[in-house]
């Protein structure tokens, strides 16, 4: 069942490696050019890899709440037809509560991050 996926993974990785090897033969020089990162023509004053201020991190927490909810969503999708209307009500009350949380976060400005 997962054999196809495994073979595809091998093929994909192998293909990418093969492309890199092919490139060694076709490019004007096999070794990469050593260079500074592009900075409009200037030398960087410091390394770019740093503690980046991802100002949208409140949204990641909100996202996490919904993402965990997806754990229930997939099994629910399979059984909703059998269980009937009660499953629909329960799930959407749950989603509704989460959505209220989103609206509250929106009103608090958590979705605005510039």
């Amino acid at each position: 069942m997962y054999l196809g996926a495994a073979v595809m993974l091998l093929l994909g990785v192998g293909g990418a490696v093969a492309a890199v090897l092919l490139h060694r033969a076709t490019s004007v020089a096999a070794a990469p050019v050593a260079t500074l990162p592009f900075l409009s023509g200037w030398r960087p004053e410091e390394h770019a890899l740093s503690r980046f201020h991802a100002r949208y991190y409140p949204v990641t927490l909100l996202f996490l709440a919904f993402d965990v909810e997806m754990l229930y969503m997939y099994p629910w999708a399979v059984v909703v037809a059998e269980v009937g209307i009660s499953a629909v009500v329960e799930m959407f009350v749950f989603l509704g509560v989460l959505m209220v949380g989103v609206l509250w976060a929106w009103r608090e400005g958590a979705l605005r991050w510039v």
């Binding site: 092919l22 490139h23 076709t26 490019s27 004007v28 020089a29 070794a31 990469p32 050019v33 050593a34 260079t35 500074l36 990162p37």
Partner: peptide
């Protein structure tokens, strides 16, 4: 394919 790769510092 013809272009070189780059290795940044």
């Amino acid at each position: 394919l013809r272009q070189r790769r780059r290795r940044t510092v």
